[in-house]
């Protein structure tokens, strides 16, 4: 009985390791090949790089792929939309959750419906042209904000519901103005969910490339994700360079993921499990 149990546990452990390996191989593959010569990387195998690590792939790709500019673009779009999303969705979720009228419930459902709503890119282009946002950095930031607001409002809304109203009442009695109440009393209490919103919005914006594909014509405004794909098209035979470019593009995502893992999981599972 005991040996059977041991064997079973060994089996489960082995399957888990095997599955983790399957998940890791593609990432290891890219990492290894980013340090090879162009010739050695041409067959994209899991062989270890021979003749030392070719770090020059990285310096080469930073120059050739104009990664300095695209990194700055990605950083700008991500942090811009993070900032706007946090402020606007916290404000909205707060008043929509606190007011218990039918109108507010309606507005809330109306906004959250955006989680499922598909974007009509074609007519959106028309709107972008009319609002003079087409081909502008601010336009793309506003777009990223608009499409991520529904989910962010959804996340914060249920969190606001858990903060007791007594706190608000005490603050009002002490003479807080509505803005002051939000800013100095409620906002600090929302910190955990706001961190989740920040991490998720950052990652989503960093990984996204469809909006720039439609709405940013000039490559000088492209974010890293779109630039790496374009680079892939031009240097399809130089897998070592493409791999290095991929590593550099993914690096910020991995760092944010490792730092914010707890918050990502909290956000991703919100609403899915009864608390």
């Amino acid at each position: 009985m005991k040996t059977r149990k041991r064997l079973r546990s060994l089996g489960v452990n082995m399957i888990a390791c095997l599955l983790s390996l399957i998940m890791l191989i593609p990432i290891v593959l890219i990492l290894l090949n980013s340090f090879k010569t162009s010739q050695a990387a041409s067959d994209m195998s899991l062989a270890l790089p021979v003749g030392g690590l070719h770090f020059e792939n990285y310096t080469l790709v930073i120059q050739k792929g104009k990664l300095g500019v695209t990194f700055f673009n990605s950083l700008l779009y991500s942090s811009g939309s993070v900032l706007l999303c946090v402020i606007l969705s916290a404000l909205a979720a707060y008043v929509l959750s606190r007011n218990r009228s039918r109108l507010h419930r309606f507005i809330y459902v109306f906004i959250v419906l955006g989680i499922t709503m598909p974007i009509n890119f074609v007519s959106l282009m028309k709107v972008m042209q009319l609002t003079l946002l087409q081909n502008t950095r601010i336009g793309i930031i506003l777009l990223y904000t608009a499409i991520q607001l529904p989910f962010d409002v959804f996340l914060i809304y249920s969190f606001v519901g858990k903060i007791p109203r007594d706190i608000d009442e005490a603050a009002v009695i002490d003479g807080c103005t509505p803005l002051r109440l939000f800013y100095s009393v409620v906002l600090p209490l929302l910190k955990p969910v706001l961190v989740t919103v920040m991490v998720l919005t950052f990652l989503n914006t960093w990984n996204e490339f469809v909006l720039p594909l439609y709405f940013l014509g000039s490559s000088s405004m492209w974010p890293m994700t779109l630039a790496v794909y374009n680079f892939f098209g031009m240097y399809v035979t130089d897998w070592n360079l493409v791999s290095a470019d991929i590593v550099l593009t993914v690096l910020p995502v991995v760092i944010v993921y490792l730092l914010g893992q707890k918050h990502i999981v909290a956000g991703m599972t919100a609403g899915a499990v009864k608390s």
Binding site: L91, A92, I119, S123
Partner: peptide
Amino acid sequence: KVYPTYFAAGALFLYVILYVFPGIIG
């Protein structure tokens, strides 16, 4: 008064102009 609805105006505005409106005129 304590929870003024206009706090939601910014989010609502961006969402309607850049998300809902294109869907409808589409």
